[in-house]
């Protein structure tokens, strides 16, 4: 396993563009830190200070930071599709196999890399969130601090699932740019299917099917936090009550998709003549 990870890391880190992209994808979450300390002064009328709205108090801070950090996953997604695209355009995939790498090992080396980077990203977010939370909230009780920490797990699963999808699309179309375009097409397709079912049957059925689709199921892992913030601010917030928690079945659906994408990538490579 270490050998396969080392292989892929050498391929990535010696490549200037993927090195820059990996760097960016790790650095960007730190902007949440800057955002949190932002004080915008509107012509001396009033000062917008995000920290004062209780956004960065435990435990809600886990939810908010993971939600926003997850939006930066696109940078590493580019790395994932290009690490497949480059292997095809340089024909190094062929040479790797001739040199004695099995097709299974080839896919696994990519998958281990995805897990490795998702783990690092999750660890960084953990540290950042902990810092922000400790700075803004007065809570010092450990059990309260780590309440809602399941959002971190959801974040990790979400990254692994999303990058596995990118890996599969990369294997499918062999070109980085097309794979990213495909991702967008898939997004639209999910909503078209939703629309058709909604129109033909009803919205309940449409939603329940939609929640099983790859991109939507990943989105469901970390629900948008705006409503939760609104609830905590509104005097009669119970009216807006919605389910923002991370559910076990949401995790299972994404893990199932991850397995499907990795397996399909392997099948694709196995059947293909290079």
């Amino acid at each position: 396993m270490l050998r396969l990870l080392q292989l892929e890391l050498q391929k990535l880190l010696l490549n200037k563009s993927s090195k820059v992209l990996i760097f960016i994808s790790f650095i960007l979450p730190f902007f949440v830190l800057i955002l949190s300390s932002l004080r915008i002064n509107f012509f001396n009328w009033f000062t917008l200070e995000l920290g004062h709205y209780g956004l960065f108090n435990f435990p809600v801070v886990w939810h908010i930071v993971t939600f926003f950090a997850a939006q930066f996953k696109f940078f590493f997604a580019i790395v994932v599709v290009s690490m497949i695209g480059n292997e095809y355009s340089n024909k190094t995939i062929k040479q790797n196999l001739i040199d004695g790498l099995s097709k299974k090992e080839f896919i696994l080396s990519k998958f281990y890399t995805i897990i490795f980077f998702s783990a690092i990203a999750t660890l960084l977010i953990f540290i950042i969130t902990l810092c922000i939370g400790l700075y803004y909230s007065s809570i010092s009780e450990v059990s309260l601090i780590f309440r809602d920490i399941e959002f971190l797990l959801a974040y990790f699963i979400k990254l692994v699932g999303f990058f596995s999808l990118c890996l599969f699309l990369g294997m499918l179309v062999k070109r980085s740019a097309f794979a990213l375009a495909f991702l967008f097409v898939l997004f639209i397709l999910e909503w078209i299917i939703f629309g058709i079912i909604n129109w033909q049957v009803n919205s309940d059925v449409a939603w329940s099917i939609h929640n099983f689709m790859p991109l939507q199921s990943m989105w469901n892992l970390i629900d948008q936090p705006f409503q939760r913030i609104a609830i905590s601010k509104a005097p009669n917030g119970q009216n807006f009550l919605y389910d923002f928690a991370v559910h076990w079945y949401e995790i299972v659906i994404v893990l199932a998709w991850t397995a499907v994408f990795i397996f399909l990538s392997y099948r694709l490579l196995k059947k293909r003549d290079l």
């Binding site: 292989l7 050498q10 010696l14 480059n86 340089n90 190094t92 790797n96 040199d99 004695g100 790498l101």
Partner: peptide, 19 residues
Amino acid sequence: NFYPYMTAQQNLKLVCRIK
């Protein structure tokens, strides 16, 4: 077929790791 952005030595190092 080699990685164009790597030097000869780095490319061979990769092959060593595979083999």
